[in-house]
Design a protein around this nucleic acid. Structure first.
Lengths: 176, 176
DNA sequence: CCGTATCCACAACGATACTG
DNA sequence: CAGTATCGTTGTGGATACGG
């Protein structure tokens, strides 16, 4: 195969947008450091306190502090004071909606590592309500499962909404 | 919400596996560098030649060479001599199956950046065959769309196959 | 066109020690 | 418990120059 993604119309010739406007590059500006991924991983596992982040993610305190600060500044985490009875007031970090919606990216890496790398894995995701295994998938709005080779890259249409809403499916039946 | 992912049974107490066996950490060992992501992005866009990688991804030749070498060594790309009529034999880089299956991770970052970051985006994925917009989704084997908050993390069952199998069959032929 | 060699800058990170 | 301060090391990457 020559390429996993076919270029459509307007995009092919113009390559400059890649560096300037590429969402992937921009996302990497925010979470590009390895420790950012690991911090987020822990956040998804439910970690919320400073030293738990450091210990479980296996990174040093100074780095932990720097990453948490960045992630809060970028809006993926929020800091919140809390207090257990009889204890001092402490800080806790929680995922915002923006942070939560990054989960599919982590899940994709998890799935890929599980499938292709040796000696890792042994964990799986399940849908809480029905107990079935869950994972990420490429799908189109018509409901088809899409292989990576069946994709086409296109400039966004003017009538399309800002971005693909991440959580709820808005299915336009009738095609297919 | 306290955590995006609920821990199930055996996993909670044991946190050590995170560092040692975590597929995410292992994946980041392979593609953790920013330039690796950018190289892969270009590969998905169809780039196959050395200086196109360097120019389009916006990274210097030495770094390009280093990343390509790593990605080939890890099995995500393969090097292949080719020859256009009347030209010298040149090298070309192509995604392997292992590399192609990383696409969902890139797509997830793309979608997230598109949705949450300012001033980027304007590109969308479409299903080639039906023309509908495509994107990644969390789904369970029962067919439900799963919100990031409806997940549960569990140790893999013994009877389950190695990893979540890729959901499509890739056609391997079809060269330029 | 496809790289390598060399050098340099800076970011990322760990280790250690210390503070409120 | 939740950090900060300091230091040294390694990784990442740009610039430049050069060779197959």
């Amino acid at each position: 195969m020559e390429s996993a993604v076919r270029m459509a119309g307007t995009l092919g010739p113009r390559a400059g947008w890649r560096a300037e406007r590429c969402s992937i590059a921009a996302a990497l500006e925010v979470i590009g450091a390895r420790s950012s991924f690991l911090i987020l991983r822990e956040a998804f596992y439910g970690t919320s306190r400073f030293d738990d982040f450091a210990r479980r993610a296996g990174i040093s305190e100074p780095v932990t502090a720097a990453r948490l600060r960045e992630l809060v500044a970028h809006g993926l985490l929020e800091r919140e004071p809390y207090r257990e009875p009889g204890q001092l007031t402490r800080e806790r970090y929680r995922l915002t909606r923006m942070g939560i919606e990054l989960f599919p990216a982590l899940a994709a890496l998890l799935q890929w590592g599980d499938r292709w790398l040796e000696g890792v894995g042994g964990v799986e995701l399940r849908h809480q309500e029905c107990g079935e295994r869950a994972g990420i998938e490429l799908r189109c709005d018509a409901g088809h499962t899409v292989g990576p080779g069946e994709l086409e890259l296109a400039a966004r249409r003017r009538d399309a909404p800002g971005a693909r809403p991440a959580t709820h499916d808005q299915k336009e039946a009738g095609d297919v």
